[in-house]
Write a protein that binds this DNA or RNA. Structure first.
Lengths: 238, 238
DNA sequence: CGTTAAGGTCAACGCCGTTGGCATAAGAAA
DNA sequence: TTTCTTATGCCAACGGCGTTGACCTTAACG
């Protein structure tokens, strides 16, 4: 077996597989992401990944301690994507909004991966970079450390939580998702007004709204709250 | 095979299994919840559930179309638990806060189930009951339908999203979770101040905060925002 | 150029969800 | 009470899974 995983930096011998591919951590993660996108989260298996790479499944254990370890690497890759598509403007509220939406979008672009990784602390480079960036924005905006950490915590968990929730909906098979979405028309819209007056009264509004994400609005509310706190503190002359 | 699932209401013959248990949808769901709690989400398999019930695994297919179907039923059960431990007071903000925390707590009490079900629209009775309740609170508080639906959407998705996120952390095996939590001490606290000044400056605050949920604070922020909107509308004399 | 061990392959283990076929006893009908 | 039907249980099997240990092969270092 793979007694021990060699870290990417210390890897020396790059021996091609029988089918000729030269493996690397990066190649494996990218291939896994592609498979997730194309075949869904149930579509990523060690065996299939092996076939896609042109390598024996057990070879993966030379690079990752197990699928769980691979999962962390995938999560970090998503964080990296988010950061790559973001630029600082110096205006804290706009920057946080943009970064939050970028993280959300990056995860939703790979829903299967998002579901697997959103609740993990990877401690890998790109994740750390994101955290440093957020804290920098907040402290730069004048939030005292205590508040900065509070807003950071709310911000990152909110973003990941919605990423996972919204991604979860996307990972369902087409058929199941359709069933879920039609629930608003088929079940909720037909509840009689005498037993469920409030749902009945708002059914059309619900059907129009519940199939898209509440994340942008909630994020805006959070930023609004943070701005208010910052304002109060400034006015108090803290 | 189980050609067709008989719905609970139409079930007639209650034949005991070889080992003497008399099955029912309810018994199966409760047993599944207990297994999830005791053995983790990887611990719930059709075979093990069969053993726990004293029945052949394939018998489950007489009650549920598959594990996915069982999953929905489990999710609805969690919603039921939340609602059972909640009482209305008539003060909308307190009521929503309590209900949100009850939902969050109910899901966290069964993290493995929460992860499986949080992003599903089950369309089952208890879920519908929760939705009707929330909409009732908001409309009763004077929110016009458009706003009520908006706040409802943010509220329920926020609560489920955090339930899933926080539950996700709890579903990790003890060893993995410890690794994740220690990350704040082992990795983040040791980042040098010259490369990661903001993390370095706030490391102790981070370590103290990141291992608990941000949900209560974020929920409060959301309610604050909703109250503000309601106040503005009232002052405008809407 | 010889040695070493990294990094491949192979075969096997014990799980998994699900299905088709079959047996049997619960409850309706007589 | 007996008979009949069929709901509901059981069994055996399928193909797939993650992971492991033993074994080969060859790239790279001295």
């Amino acid at each position: 077996m793979a007694k021990k995983v060699v870290r990417e930096g210390e890897r020396r011998r790059r021996r091609p597989t029988r089918q000729g591919t030269v493996l690397s951590e990066r190649l494996i993660v990218e291939t896994a992401l592609r498979m997730l996108r194309e075949h869904g989260s149930a579509g990523l298996t060690a065996r299939r990944l092996g076939v896609a790479l042109g390598a024996d499944p057990s070879t993966l254990y030379r690079y990752f301690a197990g699928l769980d370890d691979l999962t962390r690497a995938i999560g970090d890759e998503l964080m990296g994507h988010a950061l790559d598509g973001w630029r600082a403007t110096g205006e804290w509220r706009a920057d946080l909004r943009a970064l939050g939406l970028a993280i959300h979008a990056s995860y939703l672009a790979h829903p299967q991966a998002a579901v697997l990784t959103a609740s993990r602390v990877t401690g890998r480079p790109r994740e750390i970079e994101v955290d440093e960036t957020i804290l920098g924005i907040l402290r730069g905006a004048g939030f005292p450390d205590q508040d900065a950490v509070g807003v950071y915590h709310a911000f990152i968990d909110l973003s990941l939580a919605f990423a996972a929730l919204d991604a979860g909906a996307l990972t369902l098979t087409d058929q199941v998702r359709e069933t879920d979405e039609q629930m608003w028309d088929s079940t909720y819209a037909r509840l009689p007004a005498d037993t469920h007056p409030h749902i009945a009264a708002t059914a059309p509004l619900l059907a129009g709204r519940m199939t898209r994400s509440a994340y942008p609005e909630v994020l805006e509310t959070l930023l609004e709250g943070a701005a208010a706190r910052l304002g109060r503190r400034a006015r108090r002359g803290g």
